[in-house]
Simulated assay, not measured.
Amino acid sequence: MEKYSQFRDRGSGIAPFFPVTSTPAGIYLPVHIFLFLFKLPFFVTVATTYFLFLQWFPLGSLPKKAILWMMLGIPGIWWIDLQIDGVKKGSLAKKHEGRVPQPSNVIASSFTSPIDSLYLAAIFDPIFTVSYPHTRQIQEISLFGAILRALLRPQEHPPKGAKMTDLKDLLAEHPQRVIVVFPECTTTNGKGILPFSPSLLTTPPGTKIFPVNLRYSPPDVTTPVPGLYFSFIWNLLSRPTHCIRVRIAEVVYNTSKPTDPVAEKKERYLTNFLDTLGEDSAMTSSTDTLASLSDQPAEVNAEEKRILDKVGEALARLGRVKRVGLTVKDKAAFIDAWSKRKR
């Protein structure tokens, strides 16, 4: 692994992109094979029936959640531990108001596995979104799209023709739904929190943002490396049970005052233009700068960075991990290096 040292965080040495090695089955391999072959037909039948047919019918929230819980139950995924900041164990029923996500709230979730989306859908029936590192806008996707995205290669930029919006408009369009954001933009192995997309900064000031961290035991159902479909299904179905530990932090509000990078650059353009009046080369350069304003990523000011840091620190504390400096671009480079090693 020494040759992959560039994909370790410099400060902590954490490698968030390495796949988690499964514990060898040993003498229990026949049991694992039996469990896999026994569960696979049930899981495939329920999943295909729901995603191909039932999700398009107006069944209502409760029947859909029941089917999703069935999908979680077949592999033996159990929700064994829930901790909420500010709520003692056993007192959630008395003090749940404002402590758990409700309609018109935003969930900023960790992103490690396809199970993340399935679990959140079974609990909150939310709308899922995709965030990108260089834009504040988000892309609305389906539950199946969110599950599949955890198994795909990360993308730095939205695909051509993608319908983009922001959290403010999406919340206004769906006031009775929870919105899920994966601000890290790509999956990790759960050992670190990546830098955030600025998409959370379009949340209205009065909207609650809930940092939510999901951890799995055993952790080999995480999918930091894309394309490992069979490995994920094998790890998911060949064991008797999997445990989910859910942590919900206190509410974070977007109290920042957003910058207007277009206005700032226009002002800089006018200043430079006046300072260099008569210089054709400078005028041409300034014109090119103004023409490319729409292609520039959203800038983040100090107050906005503080909000993103607050959510990131909450996710790191909930997961008992550290924040790292590796980005989506670093993960893409890691995937290329990892693929060459396999070949």
Results as ranks from 00 to 15, higher is better:
E2H: 05
F7Q: 06
A15M: 11
P16H: 03
P16S: 02
V20Y: 00
L37R: 03
P41Q: 03
V46H: 04
F51N: 05
L52K: 08
F53H: 08
F53R: 01
W56N: 07
L59Q: 02
K64P: 06
L82H: 02
I84H: 00
V87A: 04
G90N: 00
S91C: 07
H96N: 12
S110L: 00
T112W: 01
P114M: 01
D125N: 10
I127H: 02
I127S: 10
F128A: 01
I138G: 04
F144T: 06
I147S: 00
R149P: 01
L152V: 06
H157V: 13
T165V: 13
V178S: 12
V181Q: 11
F182K: 03
T186Q: 01
P198G: 08
T207I: 13
R215E: 14
D220L: 00
V221I: 15
P224A: 04
V225W: 01
P226H: 00
L228S: 11
F230R: 03
F232Y: 04
I233K: 01
R245A: 12
R247A: 10
E250F: 02
V251C: 10
K265H: 13
D275Y: 12
S286T: 13
T289E: 15
L293E: 09
E299T: 13
V300D: 07
R306F: 11
K310G: 04
K310I: 04
G312K: 06
E313A: 14
K322W: 11
R323N: 13
G325I: 06
V328Q: 07
K331T: 02
A332R: 15
A332N: 14
I335E: 12
R341N: 09
